[in-house]
Simulated assay, not measured.
Amino acid sequence: MIADRPTVHTHEARPTVREVLHSVLLRAVLPALVMFGLLLGVGKALMTVFHEVPSESASGRRWPQSVTACSTA
Rank of each mutant, 00 (worst) to 15 (best):
T16I: 05
V42S: 00
H11K: 07
V8K: 08
V24P: 00
L26I: 05
H9F: 04
L40K: 02
A3L: 06
R14M: 14
V29A: 14
T72G: 03
V67E: 06
C70F: 13
H51L: 00
C70G: 09
F36R: 01
L25H: 10
P15N: 10
R61N: 12
A73K: 13
P15A: 11
S71A: 13
D4C: 07
A58S: 14
R62L: 15
E19M: 05
H9R: 13
E19R: 14
G43A: 08
R14Q: 12
R14E: 15
M35V: 12
L39C: 10
A58Q: 15
P31S: 05
P6S: 07
F36C: 06
R14C: 10
L25V: 01
V8Q: 03
A28S: 11
R62S: 01
E12Y: 09
L26Y: 04
V49A: 07
L39Q: 04
V8A: 03
E52A: 07
V29E: 05
S55M: 00
S55D: 15
T68G: 00
G60V: 02
P64D: 11
A32W: 04
R5C: 06
M35F: 11
V8M: 11
A58V: 01
S23K: 09
T72M: 04
T48M: 09
A13C: 01
L30I: 14
G37M: 05
F50L: 08
L26A: 14
T7A: 08
G43I: 01
T16M: 03
E19S: 15
L46Y: 01
A45I: 05
T10W: 11
L39W: 07
G41P: 03
S59Y: 15
A45P: 00
R14H: 08
M47D: 11
A3M: 06
Q65R: 12
H22M: 10
S57H: 04
P64V: 03
W63S: 12
V49E: 07
T16Q: 13
D4Y: 05
V8L: 09
S59Q: 09
M35C: 12
P31G: 05
A45S: 10
V20Q: 15
W63I: 04
T68E: 04
A13N: 03
S66I: 06
L30Q: 11
R27D: 11
T68N: 12
V8R: 11
L33P: 00
M47V: 02
L25D: 09
G43R: 03
V34M: 06
A28C: 13
